[in-house]
């Protein structure tokens, strides 16, 4: 039976880019991967923007469709429950904060029924409300309370987008490790942009995961 991997976290922590990368990587190993884009908060920078790439990789995208793809109504695609009950691998990309986790609360019974699922908290320690232990604890409690599911790991995603460099990543990751210790949660992956992968692999080994950025307009670089 396939696994359900769920990414939750604060606004702008990197959930969507990470979910896209996880889904695409998984699709290279198994067939029938489903990516559920449950970002119902608003349609800016969401997985449904890269529909074609997902199709090319054989991933089934479940997202608000048609006109509702551009809406900000709490529209949960109807087929999601049916798909959770099947055996496919599934990646769930939630919207940020408690409003995003609310959907997970709704889907809770179906997901917990399936038993093999991972709920990851994506943390970018350079984001507001994720840069100190108190805020991170508050975030964790808020997300767990709303979703009624406990986290079982952290995805460390330390970055300053275009201004990221090795130091930014190393320092940020150290901070996330510290949060993990206090929260008693293991850090499952350290996600970095592909360009940093080679250089950081000797230091972090299998913890490291190189990701490709899909949703950020490249014209933001250098202007």
């Amino acid at each position: 039976m396939g696994n359900i991997t769920i990414f939750a976290g604060g606004f702008g922590s990197g959930k969507t880019e990470i979910a896209l990368n996880f889904a695409i990587d998984r699709a290279r190993e198994v067939k029938g991967v489903v990516l559920a884009d449950l970002d119902i908060i608003n349609p800016y920078f969401v997985s449904r923007d890269v529909k074609t790439e997902l199709q090319e990789n054989g991933i089934r995208l479940i997202a608000p469709g048609g006109e509702l793809a551009f809406g900000d109504v709490p529209n949960i695609p109807a087929e999601i429950i049916g798909l959770i009950k099947q055996e496919n691998d599934m990646v769930i990309d939630l919207a940020g904060d408690e409003s995003g986790a609310l959907i997970l609360g709704y889907l809770n019974e179906y997901i917990t029924d399936r038993q093999n699922y991972d709920l990851y908290m994506v943390l970018n320690p350079y984001r507001p409300f994720s840069s100190d232990l108190e805020s991170v604890m508050e975030l964790k409690n808020m997300l767990e309370r709303t979703s009624r599911i406990k986290f079982n790991g952290i995805i460390s995603n330390p970055n300053l987008v275009e201004e990221s460099n090795i130091d930014v990543i190393v320092d940020g990751h150290l901070k996330v490790l510290g949060f993990g210790k206090w929260l008693n949660l293991p850090v499952k992956y350290l996600t970095v942009e592909q360009q940093f992968y080679q250089q950081l692999f000797p230091k972090y080994g299998e913890l490291l995961k190189g990701i490709k950025i899909y949703l950020r307009p490249d014209w933001l670089r250098g202007c």
Partner: peptide
């Protein structure tokens, strides 16, 4: 414009 409200930069 909405994009500037939603996008992230350092």
């Amino acid at each position: 414009e909405g994009t500037l409200g939603q996008m992230m930069e350092p």
